[in-house]
Design a binder for these strands. Structure first.
Lengths: 232, 232
DNA sequence: TACCTTTATTATGTCATACATAATACAAAT
DNA sequence: ATTTGTATTATGTATGACATAATAAAGGTA
């Protein structure tokens, strides 16, 4: 009965809102596929009976959503949006508050432990060779911190790659600047004393000869430093 | 030495790009806080020496990034963006291709297995009581599928909540429509025969009396159906 | 022929201006 | 005091113009 107020609610959406959905409809309807060029702004404006201003703004939204990609002065094409490229634009560590950064970090840890099954199911001999290569060229404990971090990133990046899951891989790449920031900002205190946790070398051995369960546990131990800091 | 090519690379960013970062700088510099109103478009245009068109487009980006929120005809205010609300806008399952959906699904599985440590570290007696409550009210195997799925969501949602990680929790909430779509679209085939995997009941017992490692393994088993379908 | 340079074309990027519209504040009226 | 009208203001939308950069076409040189 109180719905009477809902029923008389008028359409508050702006013209751009409508054009935005109209454009999506149009693309779906005309069965545009990835890579197809879309009509130029002026044509779209005429087709929809609005000004180029509105079309431009609607298209900008689609671009930020990752639905289209436009090249300067040469038109736009349909693209397949993925979660992560959308996020990328907003991943400016300066505008995320500290707690969010910490939570993202926790998410990363969870992901790396939980992806063991995908690694074990999809790893190839070539991957293992590549991992061994990486481990062999690792700088020792006496090496410069910068290179250690670089290797850390390379090794874990390779693990993401082995999952053959592009979304996760991109997720990781996207987070790199965040972790960089986390490290530099001292958001997480310095390493606690390094005990004999599972090394990269150890992880590779598990991947070659072990089980998903072992890899999960190994990874958990490998990340012990981070957990210790989070839980301290 | 090959850097010579990098050095002569000219600035390819558009005016809007620059204005976008200038605006962010401006807000940081002037120490604008959440809720503060920002100058009107015309003022910003004059301050930055560009047209209102450009300012509008840059502000639209900030809006889609979740940095500001603008009310019609009444100006814009600073807001605090979080990762997930940004994604939400683009999480239209219709515009994500099947493979991306599958990858997101895999990400979810990884996350739920990997978050065991956070659950065990932060679970409270109240949480356990709530979980038991949920399990007790579960519909039997003969119940309607809809209610089973609802309970599945409620139970796993509670687990995310126990991590006390808002980002993960929101991530999960955000993904619900996707999974809904995944189920309905038949992207994943129907359940394989249900063996004696770890039940919700079993998970609760582990959470109450077990270790993170046991929880990871229990969760892995609980999700066996999904893994089986992914790896088949 | 093959390759380089110039020119022409074209769609987007940017600007300036004008007007419509909706949100608010304030005055006026009951 | 509550309602209603009115003015103000910032944004929403439209229009037309020009600048610029990406390509294609044309032309010239070896």
């Amino acid at each position: 009965m109180e719905d009477i107020f809902q029923n008389i609610r008028i359409d508050t959406s702006s013209l751009v809102d409508k054009v935005e959905s109209n454009l999506i409809e149009l693309f779906v309807e005309k069965n545009f596929k990835v890579g197809d060029a879309i009509p130029k702004e002026l044509e779209l404006a005429q087709m929809l009976g609005v000004s180029r201003t509105v079309v431009r703004e609607a298209m900008l939204r689609l671009r930020l959503m990752g639905l289209i990609e436009s090249k300067k002065h040469r038109g736009a094409v349909i693209t397949s949006p993925d979660l992560v490229s959308i996020l990328e634009k907003s991943m400016n560590p300066k505008i995320l508050d500290e707690n969010t950064l910490k939570e993202i970090f926790e998410m990363r840890l969870s992901l790396e432990i939980g992806m063991a099954d995908f690694i074990m199911a999809r790893v190839t001999p070539e991957d293992i060779a590549a991992l061994k290569e990486l481990v062999a060229s690792e700088p020792g404990a006496s090496g410069q911190v910068i290179f250690q971090i670089e290797h850390e990133i390379a090794f874990h990046g390779k693990l993401y790659e082995i999952t053959r899951n592009e979304t996760m891989k991109k997720f990781q790449r996207m987070l790199l600047p965040v972790f960089d920031y986390v490290h530099k900002s001292g958001l997480l205190r310095k390493h606690t004393a390094t005990k004999d946790f599972v090394s990269h070398q150890g992880l590779v051995e598990i991947i070659e000869h072990g089980t998903p369960e072992q890899l999960r546990n190994g990874m958990r131990n490998h990340l012990e430093n981070h957990f210790a800091r989070l839980f301290e």
